[in-house]
Write a protein that binds this DNA or RNA. Structure first.
Length: 574
RNA sequence: GCGCCUGUAGCUCAACUGGAUAGAGCGCUUGGCUACGGACCAGGAGGUUCUGGGUUCAAAUCCUAGCAGGCGCACCA
């Protein structure tokens, strides 16, 4: 259900079947034709560039073509009442009363699915994937919320979406992490001082994990690190993952699958994946050049397995083995993505932090190579979150053990405000996040502004003893709209467009912007009622006009659909 | 040195992915409430869309050469 798609289809059909009358020979660019909302000052419902597009390739004057098309459309589409040719050849269209009524009915009929566009892809979205060496920090929250909302958005359109978390529970960092827990346990048990050592994790949460391990495993031995490593690793990872999962839960985020890197190694998936690439001649033994830029003291020229990612647009080929012959992180990740491909997703999406930008080309290359370009991997990068408190910058430093955790944030700000705020910027730009501002309950804080609009609608519905779940229809003959309602209705017709472009480019930030604008129109309408009785919805506890009930429903439907996708709650009273 | 991202009003950002007179919020400024919920609204001022060149009916958007800022450039994860 999409007002634009429906009418555009009709327009295209009419053009096609009347190409002779219109003197058109070339119609190849018909799919470049679009139907949109015209700029506000034109006061029209729809606008199309059809004559501009077709005039060009047929080398005729766009204005005269526009006039011919105008006559044709007025004759053939009875929902189109007035059409005006404007500017270089745009067609601005006003819908008839019947046309408007039909579209309103469609929305009231479709409700929860209004705005969705049927699509049937299978998506795998990997997001968060924070290292399991400690709780989430604020930077992770952005990617976490982005991934969650993108998943909601794609599900809203009917796609199959699997949300996945890749646990990097392998390698040196985990060893250091487990050792840190080990030493904290010894500290607690034997009052040994926790050493100051470069690679250890000094954070307070390590003590928490250590304490929990002691509490639940009174037989655990900590005499020798190597001997107790495996058991301690398991327990420590459980400890840190439960911290992370708890953070995610409080942010309203769930994953369908937690995929362990250790499992990949254990199941020998790396060998399998590398063999696949070898068979295609994309892997060979060889030498890499030393890295440019900084100098690396540990770099050695050693013969090793190399993935020829430069054949797929990467800047250089990439190592699959370390000096000692063991697999690199990248090799494990190739295996992981090979597994995703085997699980038959046709679209893969990874949500990454800005510090992983340099990794995109090589992993995309791997997916292209493994799938013969059949599966697309799209990496969305979330730029940094810059924290402020009362205008003063807040610094994070995980190494020093003094980072602002997701928990710190959640202690001060509620989930709804965090989610809305984190999405109120395009993922491509840095986000300034001020603790104090997000706590404000004013229009400076857009989430309350939108919620407030919804609460106001509910207060009317309460007064007249109705329910937003009630099925309603409008009287197509008698209904009429005032200027405010016309404006709001056009905004509501725009909703499917927002969803379409947000899901096409994976840009969920369009939704908060849109909801804010819709709320603005509603608040303006409401305030007019305070000035002028004529514009009030109710009088003496009863509805003044039947159509205003439909109106309140329309707005509520769109706000609700939008906030559901954002995962932000909508209180009926505030 | 190389790659990715960004550059739009004093500040923070939009702009339906090539459309018409580039829009919001904050800030500044002038007004409006004892309420259908003021957690709100209306008006005003504010622009060489970083710079130069190109593509076309049409460029903030595409191409190209620069400039400025951010992130990254491993056999770490």
């Amino acid at each position: 259900m999409n007002i634009f798609d429906n009418y555009l289809l009709e327009i295209n059909d009419i053009i096609l079947s009347n190409k002779d009358i219109l003197n058109l020979e070339n119609l190849e660019n018909l799919n470049n034709v679009n139907l949109e909302i015209p700029p506000e000052h034109f006061d029209f419902d729809l606008s199309t560039n059809v004559s501009l597009v077709l005039a060009k390739e047929n080398k005729i004057n766009p204005n005269s073509l526009a006039n011919s098309i105008k006559d044709l459309l007025l004759k053939k589409i009875n929902h189109f009442e007035i059409i005006e040719v404007a500017g270089p050849g745009f067609l601005n269209i006003k819908l008839s009363k019947e046309g408007i009524a039909n579209n309103i009915d469609d929305i009231l009929e479709n409700r929860d699915s209004y705005g969705s566009k049927k699509s049937n892809e299978t998506y795998n979205i990997e997001f968060v994937s924070a290292n399991p060496t400690g709780p989430m920090h604020v930077g992770h929250c952005r990617g976490a919320i982005f991934g969650d909302v993108l998943s909601n958005l794609l599900s809203f359109n009917g796609n199959q979406v699997v949300k996945e978390y890749y646990i990097n529970d392998y390698g040196n960092q985990i060893k250091n992490f487990v050792e840190s827990v080990y030493l904290r346990i010894r500290e607690i048990k034997f009052q040994e001082k926790f050493p100051v050592k470069e690679n250890l994790y000094p954070g307070e949460y390590i003590k928490e994990i250590a304490n929990n391990i002691i509490k639940n495993n009174n037989k655990i031995k900590v005499d020798n690190f190597n001997n107790s490593f495996e058991e301690l690793k398991k327990l420590s990872l459980e400890g840190s993952m439960s911290l992370i999962k708890n953070d995610l839960k409080q942010l309203g985020i769930t994953h369908d699958i937690f995929f362990s890197e250790t499992e990949i190694v254990k199941k020998n998936l790396v060998n399998k994946a590398i063999k696949k690439l070898k068979n295609k001649n994309f892997v060979e033994e060889g030498f890499l050049d030393p890295p440019k830029g900084e100098s690396f003291k540990n770099w050695k020229k050693v013969k090793r397995l190399i993935f020829k990612s430069s054949k797929f647009g990467d800047d250089t080929d990439r190592a699959l083995q370390k000096n000692d012959g063991s697999w690199t992180y990248f090799a494990n990740d190739v295996a992981y993505h090979s597994d995703k491909i085997d699980r038959k997703f046709n679209k893969l999406i990874n949500i990454l932090g800005a510090d992983h930008t340099g990794y995109i080309k090589r992993i995309s290359a791997a997916v292209s190579a493994l799938s013969n370009f059949q599966v697309s991997l799209n990496c969305k990068v979330c730029q940094l979150v810059k924290l402020y408190k009362n205008g003063k910058p807040f610094k994070m430093s995980k190494r020093a053990g003094e980072f602002i955790s997701a928990q710190d944030l959640l202690n001060e700000v509620n989930k709804d405000a965090i989610r809305f705020m984190m999405l109120s910027r395009s993922n491509d730009i840095e986000l300034d996040f001020d603790f104090e501002k997000v706590k404000e309950k004013t229009k400076d804080n857009p989430v309350y502004y939108v919620q407030y609009a919804y609460a106001r609608i509910n207060s009317i519905i309460r007064i007249i003893n109705k329910n937003l779940d009630d099925k309603i229809t409008i009287d197509k003959k008698s209904f009429s709209l005032n200027e405010f309602e016309e404006k709001i209705l056009r905004k509501i017709f725009e909703w499917p467009k927002i969803i379409e472009s947000a899901s096409l480019k994976y840009e969920p930030h369009k939704i908060p912007f849109y909801l804010y604008e819709l709320s603005t129109l509603f608040h303006a309408y409401w305030s007019k009622g305070n000035e002028n009785n004529e514009f009030r919805f109710i009088e003496n506890g009863a509805l003044k006009r039947e159509e205003s009930l439909a109106f309140l429903h329309l707005i509520a439907i769109v706000i609700k659909n939008g906030m559901n996708i954002l995962g932000v709650s909508l209180p009926e009273k505030m």
